[in-house]
Amino acid sequence: MRLTVLGGCGAWPTAVQACSGYLVEHAGFRLLVDPGYATLPRLLAHHTVDAIDAVLISHGHPDHCADLNPLLRARGLGDTPPPSLPVYTPHGAADAVLALDRPSMLAEAFHLHEFQPGDRFDIGPFRTDTWLLPHFVPNAGIRLTTPDAVLAYTGDTGPSPDVLRLAQGADLLLSEATYIHEVPVADAPYLLTARLAGQYASRADVGRLMLTHLWPGTDPRAAHEAAAQAFRQPVDVATPGLVIGVAGA
């Protein structure tokens, strides 16, 4: 399994960082996870739009799904449109993005598969397990399993014992870390810190931790340091172009 980071900025993109977006590849299958703001140009640096085999969205905030629209436009309005793109999303999470165009315009460009967080299903070679994790809107924590690797991704979440269940024994935990040490009180049930991400990674005995969804302007070195105080295995911060091979022991 291989993970390519397209972006890892929370809330809105910056001049150097797209929002959440990750390309996960295994056995020739390319799964795009969370096409947030500004991720399509990053994707095009690696592949053409017709190279994507499926899309998986954790929740309906635009910094995790807004670039589904230009992706579908690029696929559906080209001279030789590829087959319909399977799009997996919690119920209703993609409604606002899909409503940006008249329904008939992109109707042949995608096939929608809606699920409830907590469901298990297959996407190509990936067994996909999901958990409902606490956020401002329904958010699916995602665990992708192949015969030789496990990748766990929190989406956006606050503290929950289900984060440990999601991450247990994973080769890579891709964890939201909006803040470094402390979340503002009003948002504390719905977001994590780099320090908490490190603690979860340690308790879940994961092989590697990658921090993502940092608030714009956050010093990635400070986030890395906060996580590394609790987690003694490798720690990365999601930056565009970073490629990680995800493999079991």
Rank of each mutant, 00 (worst) to 15 (best):
P189H: 01
L72G: 02
A45P: 00
E182Y: 04
L209Y: 05
P134G: 04
G60S: 14
P134F: 06
A177M: 13
I180F: 08
V235N: 05
V97Q: 00
R73Y: 00
L144D: 06
P62F: 11
D63F: 15
Q233L: 12
P184D: 00
A99C: 07
L214E: 01
L166M: 09
F136T: 14
L164W: 07
G198K: 09
V137W: 12
A15I: 10
D122A: 14
G28E: 06
A140Q: 10
A230E: 13
A27D: 15
E108S: 11
S104A: 12
M1P: 06
W12I: 09
S20F: 08
A201R: 00
A167F: 09
P240C: 08
L106C: 01
I52Y: 00
C65V: 14
V16N: 10
P70I: 01
P117C: 01
A188Y: 04
T128Y: 03
A140I: 09
R195Q: 10
L68Q: 11
S84K: 13
T130W: 04
A51F: 00
R143D: 02
A201E: 02
R75P: 02
A51I: 07
A249W: 15
A140C: 11
A99M: 05
C65G: 06
V5I: 14
D219M: 03
S20W: 01
A249L: 14
P216A: 03
P62E: 12
S58Y: 01
P86A: 09
L56Y: 05
Q17F: 10
T89S: 13
S175F: 02
H111C: 15
P138Y: 02
D122W: 08
R221Y: 09
R208M: 11
V235L: 06
V243C: 15
A109E: 02
H213D: 11
G245I: 03
D53Y: 08
V5K: 10
L112E: 00
F126G: 06
V206N: 07
Y153C: 13
L166S: 01
T154M: 11
L166I: 06
T89Q: 00
A27P: 07
D95F: 07
W131I: 11
D79M: 12
L98I: 02
W131D: 06
T130F: 07
A45C: 06
Y153R: 12
R143F: 05
V243S: 14
L132G: 01
E114N: 06
D162E: 09
L3K: 02
P86F: 03
T14G: 14
G158M: 12
V150E: 09
D53F: 10
G10T: 08
A11M: 09
V55F: 13
I180P: 11
L164M: 08
E108A: 15
G248K: 06
W215M: 14
E225Y: 05
L77D: 01
L164R: 12
Y190I: 08
A197M: 02
Y22P: 12
L98W: 01
H135W: 02
A201S: 05
L172P: 10
M105C: 12
H181K: 09
G28W: 14
T193F: 04
D119C: 05
S202R: 15
E114M: 01
F136Y: 14
D219L: 08
G158A: 10
Q17M: 14
L43Q: 03
A230Y: 00
R203H: 07
P189R: 03
L211Y: 08
H59L: 11
G60R: 10
L166G: 01
